[in-house]
Design a binder for these strands. Structure first.
Lengths: 251, 251
DNA sequence: TCGAATTTGTGCGTATGTATC
DNA sequence: GGATACATACGCACAAATTCG
């Protein structure tokens, strides 16, 4: 007979109370000591049950304050397809506009940063070659929803008006448009999404729970000559964003 | 002063021994009791350190046997792009051929399965409408690397030669080709990749560690009329496969 | 073939740290 | 600053799986 372990039983009790609207979104649960006494079990069993529900996004723990029923917030839809590139304006802002949200970002650019080994490999240049590195923090209605670190070979844009991705007359229109301005035609992008857990720093920047699930996308843009022109590491929290790829089928 | 907790210190010790090739891939580590005594710490601290490294894919625990240094196996590259659809043959087999591996799969089809609510929503049909459900297990060189559950509206293919995805003259060539055989042109696919942890059942089917990270892709194929013709839930383990999207940029 | 020893995995308790009110 | 509540670290007992004589 497969008897359920106590902590799973308690998890079901908590889940059911939420389903029955005994506790609703945003409510603070009684303290662990109270729940433990009420259910006649150890305090640690309650903790395990709550940890489980927190990892599933049902609850939310706030240190020093209490355990709360998670608010079911609307997830931001991030579309990744060829149609996303607009002749003007940024892809991200287009995503946000489609949702009726205001898209913003903050960025910090540094020139002549030596390429680390992995980045050099992705850009097809030698390790240590100078790059332009830009760190982005994307905001939807003021809340951070996406992080990105972009790398471009310095040699590619040195001396042109588009050296700085977020400066000059072509600021904030995306890689494809910027490269077009200096005569480089971007023909395709390769994206490699990988599931992992957020680092402590990412969790703090994104305002999500520690070790929450994120999708880490390694994206590289290629020119029509097949040369990499930009590569980026993009971090998207699963709880707040859904990622959509649209793939045309050619026959 | 940020003093490191003991279990993190031990984790670093273990990591370093692997880096220094004291232990190499496939080696069995000494038992927890031995390591604990050697380092002069509690047995449980070793356990915590090992759990951390297991979750990072550095170690591998085998119940009743021991803790081993994980083998750095070559990951299978799964390409998802428009160019993947071939006039004949399956997309999966093409992926495997590109890697010099043998691609196979096992499948189990069931007709007239009532559509659950979520599937019905994705296919644009009413809940409970009959569907053809096919469960796949994809193998690379005999090892499971991908799970998939596919749903098609029964009405779409009823009475034709392609009712059964893996039966009849058009078996094993993929959705696009099968639909073409009955005059339905598939124009595009939408894929929604989501990071999560493997369920116990998935972990057992894929031969991966419990709660290992996977990418769960919800894929839907649409006809040129904009009608959904098939939707699938695809589970790809992160440790074994890398997913690559190729996106053309049109201007 | 079977059972005992070994080893990992799980459940649960306690002590302490730390954030919040 | 004190009280409260969650977060973390660690220990012990036992279950489950494996190995081996």
């Amino acid at each position: 007979m497969p008897e359920q372990p106590p902590y799973l039983r308690i998890a079901d009790v908590l889940r059911q109370r939420i389903a029955e609207h005994v506790w609703t979104a945003g409510d603070r649960l009684p303290s662990r000591a109270q729940i433990a006494e009420e259910c006649g079990i150890g305090e640690n069993v309650v903790r395990r049950a709550q940890e489980l529900l927190i990892s599933q996004g049902v609850l939310e723990g706030r240190a020093g304050s209490g355990t709360y029923v998670a608010e079911p917030r609307q997830r931001v839809r991030v579309v990744r397809s060829s149609a996303r590139e607009q002749p003007d304006g940024s892809p991200f802002r287009a995503d946000m506009r489609a949702l009726g949200k205001q898209g913003n970002w903050e960025s910090r650019t540094e020139a002549k940063v030596p390429a680390p080994a992995e980045i050099a490999g992705r850009l097809g240049i030698a390790e240590g070659e100078p790059c332009v590195r830009t760190v982005y923090e994307f905001l939807a209605d003021g809340r951070p929803v996406q992080l990105s670190t972009s790398w471009e070979p310095y040699e590619l844009t040195a001396g042109t008006l588009v050296v700085l991705p977020e400066g000059g007359p072509h600021a904030g229109v995306g890689v494809v448009n910027r490269m077009a301005a200096i005569g480089i035609a971007v023909s395709h992008a390769v994206e490699q999404p990988e599931p992992r857990q957020a680092t402590a720093e990412e969790a703090s920047l994104l305002g999500i729970q520690k070790a929450a699930l994120v999708t880490h996308i390694r994206r590289t843009y290629y020119s029509d000559q097949g040369q990499p022109v930009e590569t980026a590491d993009i971090v998207i929290p699963a709880a707040q964003c859904e990622i959509v790829y649209e793939i045309p089928v050619n026959r």
